[in-house]
Design a protein around this nucleic acid. Structure first.
Length: 114
RNA sequence: UCAGUCGGCCGGACGGCCGCUCCGGCAGGGACCGAAAGGUCGCCGGGGAGGAAAGUCCGGGCUCCACGGAUCAACGGUGCCGGAUAACGUCCGGCGGGGCCCAGCCCUUCGGGGCGACGCUUCAGGGAAAGUGCCACAGAGAACGAACCGCCGCGGCACGUAGCGUAUCGUCGCGGUAAGGGUGAAAAGGUGCGGUAAGAGCGCACCGCGCCGGCGGCAACGUCGGCGGCACGGCAAACCCCACCGGGAGCAAGACCGAAUAGGGACGGCACGGGAGCAAUCCCGGGAUCGGUCCGGAUCUCGCCGUCCGGGUAGGUUGCUUGAGGCGCCGGGCAACCGGCGUCCCAGAGGAAUGGCCGUCACGCGUGCGGUUCUCCGCGCGCUCUACAGAACCCGGCUUACAGGUCGGCUGAUACG
RNA sequence: GGCCACGUGGCGGAGUGGUUACGCAACGGUCUGCAAAACCGUGUACCCCGGUUCAAUUCCGGGCGUGGCCU
């Protein structure tokens, strides 16, 4: 899994297509080159203490890792913004949420033409 | 055995599947990203959050800046004494003060009041006779002490009671007085006896306070004796004085590598800021330097292209974990702690690893059913299945948060001997 | 990670060791046919816990919260 690390990449992804689910918000942006898909995670301080924020990020990371082969398109950047419900939501449920969100990103990214 | 309190220690265990990161070893050949610096991608073995990692409240190491060194001033901090320590506002031991309990002693109008060994507990605990300042309201008076009501004496008035020169009461004036009332957070040594017109350290006893001296102790201080009759209210977490300590910033410190773009410098070529004018020249701007500053002035300069150079931003590498280190034994010390010997290497991330999912068990909590006088026992279900909480350069402390377990001390209750 | 400020009624915002200004808002009244404006009046606060002091919102210590800077 290639991670997003630069602040500028996060800001660019935030301007792309967004899909909200119960445990996270998925942001996607087509980067325009042939490199591998990159994933970034954002968990703000509003979510909770450092322990809870770490746990949210780790669970989301494993959600992506378990379904990475499925819907990720090369040349795209994705950012998952964690929410507090990611602490307690069923893990299988979150994997399903992620798949659905990816398909909606696909349609949404094509429709406006960018 | 149970409960409370204080202190120390621990703070889930085992297993399966899939991952992350660092170190060592083996391969050392390529592939990918990037303009470069550099980074990513194998196999095997091993390591991988805390007692608070937290708050950032103190003290250091380390790094840079300033600096020849020292002293003083300013500012900030600390504040009984001794010790521990690299250092500290921390820790240990002692001293002193306050509070509680109380053996006992003293006084008593027999109601009570004062002192108080030992014990428990608590204290940011230098100096208020160097100075300045403050002490609201109430109260007569709040800090070179003060007469409101009182109390007492003397004198005048009035002669009402009594009575024939005095007593008592009333009133006015002068004086004495800190016993009593009242105000207040605080009223100028306390209690008792004597004393007195009434009172008063006026005198005495005990206690308190101050000064001097002896003795004990490294010291803080204690104790004994004498003197003073009391002169010295509180606040320094008010200014301040005294003693001691402190240069400033912080790993986003700092070091190295280093684009793109803009800007700087040097050299070369063309051109010589804008306007008027054929031109000399005049007018209007911008920038730099000079004189301490402003105004004013003087001098130099202004564009384009190319090559090279240095600083430096993004980014990357490093700093980055062996340290006032852990564990064990022995020795010293009341203790904090110190010394010696042996042994071990024990997280190093960087949009940030140390995990995700699942199973079994232990424990706890909640709940239901059954047994049971209760305590409790058995079974089932639920819990993010665990409290507080996540290293960010590293140590020593402090403070704050914390389910539960365990060990020891003390106090109390109950049962048995 | 580090550094630094600030918490005063519903909101903004002064101030001080001794009963906290002021403005807006709210409520009640006067005025009006009804309202607005104007005028009069009322209520509501010193973030929390300890300490110093006779007395703390103020001084000191600790906690909690909010905001800013260093990139």
């Amino acid at each position: 899994m290639v991670r997003l690390k630069q602040r500028a990449d996060f800001l660019a992804a935030a301007s792309g297509t967004k899909v909200a689910t119960a445990a996270f918000v998925l942001q996607g942006r087509w980067r325009g080159d042939a490199g591998p898909a990159r994933i970034g995670f954002t968990v703000s301080r509003k979510v909770g203490t450092a322990v809870e924020r770490n746990r949210v990020r780790r669970r989301l990371r494993d959600v992506v890792r378990r379904s990475a082969a499925d819907g990720l398109r090369a040349g795209c950047d994705y950012v998952l913004v964690g929410r507090r419900t990611a602490l307690s939501r069923q893990f299988d449920q979150m994997i399903e949420d992620f798949g659905n969100a990816l398909r909606r990103i696909e349609r949404g990214a094509r429709k406006p033409g960018r």
